[in-house]
Amino acid sequence: MTRLAREFHSVVCIKQVPDSAQIRVHPVTNTIMRQGVPTIINPYDLFALEEAMRLRDEYGGTVTVLTMGPPMAEDALRRALGLGANRAVLITDRRFAGSDTLATSFALSKALTRIGEEHPIDIVFTGKQTIDGDTAQVGPGIARRLGLNQLTYVAAIDALDRDGATITLRRRSEGGVQVLRSRLPCLITMLEDTNTLRRGTIQDMLRAARAPVTTWSAEEAGIADPMQCGLRGSPTVVKRVFAPRPRADKAEMVVVEGKTPAQTADAVLDLLFAQSPNLEAALSARFKS
């Protein structure tokens, strides 16, 4: 995917996910009851989408949104168009069902290659992670397969030099932020809370309502070998799904009757340090110096 000097092009990978707060587990069979569970765009992906649109507004060009999912994932793409994305691609095929992260990144990277052949890509964006899969691996997986520079947990894009094909950005790491310079094309996984999602205009909404969503099957996405897709292409297998045991004990209640706030606070600290002696030690250590 070498960059050609054409207009700036970002592709944002978004996933349609169930609104996790509403997931229910069948009490007997321990399977997921999907009935009536609303779906949303993975909230983390919206930060990636906004960042891509921000760059487009600054440097011109196009933002394409890409998703792999069931046909109804088209709703998520249409919503992204309404937010201001220019083009939408859905890859959907029965053979994708049951994909783990390796198989997902395989299918997406094939689709990205096909998109890139028509319209070279400068940046592939993904969210930090999904709220259902929650692995944060699909981004790195895509980067590896396409040989893109992998820039995860990006907190801010400081500068983009299109002629020199370089990008300067901030990446969250343990205990601080790395300021990095890398080369385009690259893959960025965007950190949450890094920007504020815009509202599309009425024109965006009208365009989104009518825009065609490009839909590709596995073959159309350029996947010749279905062995690498879906369940077959997934080295991991889920052997068991179960609901976590609910915490048997509710909170231990601090008696407040007949106590002043100061006495209550002392009682809280007593109980706290009794439950977790480590905590007291750790807290004390922090302030010793």
Partner: peptide, 15 residues
Amino acid sequence: PTFGGTLLCTIHTLN
């Protein structure tokens, strides 16, 4: 955990 902690799953890597 998966689905925001609503569920747990046990995963093996085959082959």
